[in-house]
Computed example of a mutant assay.
Amino acid sequence: MPKVEIYSKFTCPYCARAKMLLDQKGVAYEEYEISMGGPKRTEMLERANGRTTVPQIFINGYHVGGSDDLAELERAGKLDALLAAPAD
Score class of each variant (00 low, 15 high):
residue 82 L to E: 11
residue 53 T to C: 10
residue 65 G to Y: 00
residue 84 A to R: 12
residue 43 E to L: 13
residue 74 E to Y: 01
residue 56 Q to R: 09
residue 15 C to D: 01
residue 66 G to R: 03
residue 85 A to M: 13
residue 60 N to Y: 13
residue 70 L to Y: 03
residue 36 M to A: 15
residue 72 E to K: 07
residue 72 E to D: 13
residue 73 L to S: 08
residue 56 Q to A: 12
residue 83 L to H: 09
residue 77 G to P: 05
residue 77 G to R: 03
residue 35 S to G: 13
residue 57 I to R: 07
residue 67 S to P: 03
residue 33 E to V: 06
residue 20 M to I: 00
residue 70 L to A: 09
residue 41 R to N: 12
residue 15 C to K: 01
residue 42 T to Q: 11
residue 82 L to Q: 11
residue 72 E to Y: 01
residue 49 N to I: 10
residue 68 D to I: 00
residue 46 E to W: 02
residue 50 G to N: 08
residue 18 A to E: 03
residue 79 L to M: 11
residue 70 L to M: 07
residue 42 T to V: 15
residue 53 T to M: 11
residue 70 L to I: 11
residue 38 G to H: 09
residue 87 A to E: 15
residue 30 E to V: 12
residue 84 A to E: 13
residue 74 E to M: 03
residue 77 G to A: 14
residue 71 A to S: 10
residue 26 G to F: 01
residue 24 Q to D: 14
residue 15 C to Q: 01
residue 44 M to F: 07
residue 87 A to T: 14
residue 51 R to D: 12
residue 18 A to N: 03
residue 34 I to M: 03
residue 80 D to T: 09
residue 30 E to K: 06
residue 80 D to A: 13
residue 44 M to Q: 09
residue 29 Y to S: 06
residue 47 R to A: 15
residue 66 G to Q: 08
residue 57 I to M: 14
residue 36 M to Y: 12
residue 22 L to K: 05
residue 73 L to Q: 05
residue 65 G to S: 07
residue 69 D to Q: 04
residue 60 N to W: 11
residue 14 Y to D: 05
residue 15 C to N: 01
residue 34 I to K: 03
residue 57 I to W: 09
residue 61 G to H: 14
residue 30 E to S: 13
residue 55 P to S: 10
